[in-house]
């Protein structure tokens, strides 16, 4: 599983941080997404897919 984020689309809602805290964080200065782990283990798949579904700005892509 590979995760791709689009910082330009991100609106800093924080949904991904709640859904998958081991994979996503937010920059302190502007709240924009920080990818902690671009290749998360399969055990986190449902969390990561949930984060992508929750993202209001469609800024998270999960590649198999």
């Amino acid at each position: 599983m590979k995760v791709i984020i689009d910082e330009d689309k991100c609106v800093g809602a924080g949904q991904c941080v709640l859904a998958a805290p081991d994979v996503f964080d937010q920059r302190d200065e502007d709240g924009i997404v920080v990818l902690l782990d671009a290749l998360p283990p399969d055990a986190l798949r449902s969390q990561v897919e949930n984060a992508a579904a929750l993202c209001p700005a469609l800024a998270i892509e999960v590649v198999k």
């Binding site: 609106v11 800093g12 941080v17 937010q26 302190d28 502007d30 709240g31 924009i32």
Partner: peptide, 13 residues
């Protein structure tokens, strides 16, 4: 929005 999002992050809250 970008001027404000840093004030409302999960960590800050």
């Amino acid at each position: 929005r970008r001027l404000l999002t840093g004030e409302f992050t999960v960590r800050r809250m």
